[in-house]
């Protein structure tokens, strides 16, 4: 599904943010990418979204080589990937329903389809009753659920979550992780970038560890990894 081969990225010559990183993430996997600030996690996400171009190496998603995707083809490519951020990035002047519908409007989905799918998605994330609320009227956890509904409404094959629990308390963080696990169980490949080692340890998934732009470990965590 995601194949990264010998990828390096330098914002300035001689200062690599990523250095010769290779990994393969299969269809339907749930993977954590962990590492300190400056480890290259965010750069990796930007490369996967084709917001940045690698200095060296190749990235393939599905059968597509990202270096061969033209500027005009980028929107179509991005529709295959859902993305969730730490700060939710909801439109504050639109209610829950409109925020989710927005993602479908943007990809020019028919209105009939929007009217059917948005309530289904809100129901899946447990916010059907709050469809008229504005983001400021919701808790952090609820806002992140709206963001997840928005990311999934166009049925992407991959969900990238960049620090999805970074702004949440422990209970809400767990709720979000459980939701991501449910989404993964339905067949969506989920890649979560996080600092939250408590959750990473407890969920016993594949964990890729980055340090100063280098991939230092890639293993399935279980009982052995618990301190």
């Amino acid at each position: 599904m995601i194949k990264i081969e010998h990828v390096s990225k330098a914002y300035q010559a001689g200062v690599p943010a990523l250095n010769d990183v290779s990994m393969f993430i299969g269809t339907g996997e749930f993977v954590f990418i962990v590492g300190d600030s400056g480890s290259g996690k965010s750069t990796l996400i930007k490369l996967l979204l084709k917001e940045l171009e690698p200095t060296e190496g190749t990235i393939k998603i599905g059968n597509e080589d990202l270096s061969k995707i033209t500027h005009k083809q980028v929107p179509k490519f991005r529709r295959k990937i859902g993305v969730v951020f730490q700060d939710f990035r909801l439109l504050q002047d639109r209610n829950v329903y409109e925020n989710v519908a927005f993602a479908m409007k943007v990809v020019e989905a028919p209105n009939r389809e929007i009217r059917t799918k948005v309530p289904q998605m809100l129901s899946m994330v447990g916010l059907a009753a709050k469809y008229r609320s504005l983001p400021k009227q919701l808790s952090g956890g609820e806002q992140q659920r709206v963001a997840i509904a928005r990311a999934l409404v166009n049925e992407p094959k991959i969900l990238l979550a960049d620090e999805p629990t970074g702004n949440l308390d422990s209970k809400n963080a767990w709720d979000i992780m459980n939701l991501l696990e449910q989404i993964n169980a339905r067949g969506t490949t989920v890649v979560v970038v996080t600092h939250n080692m408590e959750i990473v340890k407890a969920m016993k998934k594949r964990v890729i560890t980055m340090k100063k732009g280098v991939l230092v470990s890639d293993e399935k965590w279980g009982e052995d990894n618990e301190d």
Binding site: L49, E51, P75, K76, R78, R79, V83, R89, R150, N154
Partner: peptide
């Protein structure tokens, strides 16, 4: 957001 979601 529009650009990330895949707006033309």
């Amino acid at each position: 957001i529009m650009k990330l979601i895949g707006a033309k």
